[in-house]
């Protein structure tokens, strides 16, 4: 798989504060790449540099093997961006908004009408075309934001906290569309999110802390590295659990025992076969990984907790 994004030793400082400090990573073609971190970790700064919105202080950025310093306009044609908040013109209709943005990529006339129909079908907004964006619900606006980002058929879709504040139905629709595009068009998706369950579905994850990579890998690698396994035991007493000599917590109708890894869980089960009649073994969650790596939990607002 080709590298769609290559970042080497990227640096950006604002006065004494280095928002991005010697950051290097690669995003492969067709990958769902999750870029995590609390607010101020350097996610938005990195995205702004990739999109040509912010000048970098050092390092190299290549998008689709094109150097950002040499061909910034070519790179802009490869990127589609869904911003944290909707940045479309609220007073204009959906069609007017998309028409004005499409023209900036040289898409107009019949070409625009065809693309608009395609996107309206894909994102189910055919009945919203004549409505002002300001009058749409949050979920409807998000669908239009995604349509706007896809107007010029970009190779990389940057989703900057795309599902924050959305209802579950719209989130499902959004991810359905993204998955469809990834499969059909081999679209590369660069995602920042505060929902760890979304990051758990990624092909590769980077956790950023103070402008540096604090951890990186597939969700499975990260879970194996930074969290242990959990055995949930049903139908046992607390005295029995205490005998296992492992840390545990009481949940509604069971006990959740922490073990370092799956191997340790297996050993525990073999040693105490009478106790393990009704149980399940689960990996740690991405929330646990995030907490272990950064020492901070991540809330919906992305602030430190």
């Amino acid at each position: 798989m080709a590298d769609m994004i290559q970042i080497e030793h990227l640096k950006k400082c604002f006065g004494d504060l280095c928002a991005v400090n010697d950051l290097s990573f690669r995003v492969k073609e067709g990958e769902l790449f999750a870029f995590l971190g609390v607010n101020g970790a350097g996610k938005s700064t990195t995205i702004n540099i990739i999109c040509g919105q912010l000048k970098k202080d050092g390092g190299n950025v290549k998008i689709c093997e094109t150097d950002l310093d040499k061909e910034p306009d070519l790179i802009k044609r490869s990127l589609g961006v869904v911003f944290q908040g909707s940045v479309l013109d609220k007073d204009l209709t959906v069609k007017d908004n998309l028409e004005s943005r499409a023209a900036l990529y040289g898409i107009h006339g019949t070409k625009f009408k065809e693309r608009l129909s395609e996107l309206a079908r894909l994102l189910d907004f055919e009945d919203l075309l004549r409505r002002p964006v300001g009058k749409l619900s949050g979920g409807q606006k998000r669908r239009i934001d995604i349509a706007r980002a896809l107007l010029h058929k970009p190779k990389i879709l940057i989703l900057d906290e795309p599902t924050t504040g959305l209802d579950p139905q719209t989130r499902t629709l959004l991810w359905g569309v993204v998955e469809k595009l990834r499969k059909q068009e081999n679209l590369t998706v660069f995602l920042t999110t505060h929902y760890m369950e979304e990051a758990a579905d990624a092909d590769f994850v980077i956790i950023l802390d103070h402008g540096k990579i604090a951890a990186e890998g597939t969700p499975l690698t990260l879970k194996n590295t930074y969290t242990g396994d959990f055995i949930t035991l049903y139908g046992v007493s607390e005295d029995d659990i205490k005998k296992l000599g492992k840390p545990y917590e009481r949940i509604r109708d069971a006990f959740r025992v922490s073990v370092p890894d799956t191997h340790a869980a297996t050993e525990l089960i073999i040693k105490n076969p009478d106790m393990f009649r009704d149980y399940e073994i689960t990996k740690g969650k991405m929330d646990d990984v995030f907490l272990a790596v950064t020492g901070k939990s991540i809330g919906i607002t992305g602030g430190e907790q």
């Binding site: 999109c51 040509g52 919105q53 306009d73 070519l74 802009k76 044609r77 990127l79 961006v81 911003f83 908040g85 940045v87 479309l88 013109d89 609220k90 943005r101 900036l104 990529y105 706007r148």
Partner: peptide
């Protein structure tokens, strides 16, 4: 102030 400028300047215009 609305951020629309970002949406315009991420295009090749």
């Amino acid at each position: 102030t609305s951020g629309a400028i970002h949406d315009l300047t991420i295009t090749p215009v």
